[in-house]
């Protein structure tokens, strides 16, 4: 029995359902072609298919559970696939206190990720040590790895975590393809002693 087949020829309008298609980047359209810069296409593709690596150590991890859960549903923003292998992921989400004992482990995970990689510090502890200004807590993960987006809160609400992901998406979309090979980036990495 043949199945009914619908070809995806007509641009359907889902806007009344709250579903939006990704907007076309700037470019030149004409009869049967569309021309834009590669950078924009790559940025668009990367932005909407982030693979987050949750590095959850404490309380913020529980809020991340809620964010991933059915109520808040981070998958709506193209982050359906939460990977647990650093080699496959491109967004490291550090959630929770990082103790000094944990610092080297975090750095190791960061080093195992392939470029391009982004880091999001979720919560006060990951951003600055939070209320734990103590001998055993790393005062912010930016002491060991570079961070792209800080999400404030102790713990941040799921909405705040989603906002952080959207900020990361903005960065990803607008990132120059040359950034990761540039001098400035190299200097940043050298600052952390990462080759």
């Amino acid at each position: 029995m043949s199945r009914p087949v619908r070809f995806n020829m007509i641009q359907k309008d889902f806007s009344d359902l709250g579903i939006n298609n990704v907007q076309l980047p700037e470019g030149h359209t004409g009869e049967g072609f569309f021309a834009t810069s590669l950078e924009k296409v790559v940025g668009m593709a990367r932005k909407n298919s982030m693979w987050p690596l949750p590095f959850a150590t404490s309380c913020c991890g529980i809020e991340f559970m809620a964010t991933m859960g059915s109520h808040y549903d981070l998958s709506r923003f193209g982050s359906e696939r939460v990977g647990f292998s650093p080699r496959q992921c491109d967004l490291l989400m550090v959630m929770g206190t990082i103790a000094k004992k944990m610092g080297p482990v975090l750095r190791q995970v960061y080093l195992q990720m392939a470029e391009p990689r982004w880091v999001m510090a979720v919560g006060a502890c990951a951003s600055s040590g939070g209320i734990f200004d103590t001998y055993s807590v790393l005062q912010g993960i930016d002491q060991v790895i570079p961070v792209d987006v800080y999400v404030p809160g102790c713990p941040p609400r799921p909405e705040a975590i989603i906002d952080g992901v959207l900020r990361i998406q903005e960065l990803v979309q607008n990132e120059s393809l040359r950034r990761r090979t540039g001098e400035q980036y190299k200097a940043l990495m050298d600052g952390y002693g990462i080759q």
Binding site: A99, K101, T134, Y135, S136
Partner: peptide, 11 residues
């Protein structure tokens, strides 16, 4: 253990 030791008792 101790990867998230935050020194509660000292605080």
């Amino acid at each position: 253990v101790g990867y998230i030791h935050r020194a509660f008792e000292k605080i």
